[in-house]
Amino acid sequence: MRIEDRQTPASITVEDLEVVFPPPTPDDPPAVAVDGVSFEINTGELVVLVGRSGCGKTSVLNVLAGLYKPTSGSVSIVGKPPLAARDHIGYMFARDGLLPWRTARRNVEFALEIRYGRSLSRSERKARAIEYIEKVGVGHALNRYPWQLSNGMRQRVALARTWAIEPDVLFMDEPFAALDAQTRAEVQREFLDVWTRDKKTVVFVTHDLKEAILLADRIIVMRGGKVVDQVSVDIARPRDENMIEEDPAYRSMHHRLIEGLQLDHVPSREI
Rank of each mutant, 00 (worst) to 15 (best):
A236C: 04
P167D: 07
E186T: 12
H254T: 01
V228L: 02
I258G: 03
W147D: 15
R154E: 08
R144C: 14
A158D: 08
D240Y: 06
P175D: 00
A249R: 15
V202P: 04
V221D: 04
V203F: 09
M153N: 02
D198M: 12
V205K: 00
A129N: 10
Y116T: 06
R197E: 14
K226Y: 03
V157S: 06
Y132F: 15
D193S: 13
L142P: 11
K226G: 07
A164P: 09
D198N: 07
R237K: 14
E166K: 11
D240M: 10
Y132G: 06
V136I: 12
V157N: 01
L257T: 04
K199Q: 15
T183K: 01
L257H: 07
R197K: 15
V203G: 09
I235C: 03
R197H: 11
T162Y: 04
K126C: 15
V233W: 00
L159M: 11
H255W: 04
F176Y: 03
A160G: 06
I258A: 08
A164C: 14
R125V: 14
A212E: 00
W195E: 09
R239K: 01
W195I: 05
V221N: 02
P248L: 09
L192S: 08
E211G: 04
H207W: 02
V203R: 03
P146D: 12
R128I: 07
V202M: 07
G117L: 03
L120Y: 08
S119A: 15
E166G: 10
S121W: 06
K226L: 04
I130H: 07
R237Q: 08
L214E: 01
V227D: 05
A141R: 13
V202S: 15
W147Q: 13
A177R: 06
G139W: 14
G152F: 03
H254F: 11
Q182T: 13
K210A: 12
E211N: 12
I133A: 09
K210Y: 00
D247G: 03
W147M: 13
R122W: 02
A181S: 07
R251Y: 08
A158M: 13
D208L: 00
Q148L: 03
T206E: 01
P167S: 01
A236S: 13
S252Y: 00
R189I: 06
G225P: 14
L142G: 12
D198T: 14
S252V: 07
D208M: 00
M222C: 06
N242I: 06
E246W: 13
R251W: 04
A216W: 00
V136S: 05
V202K: 02
V233F: 00
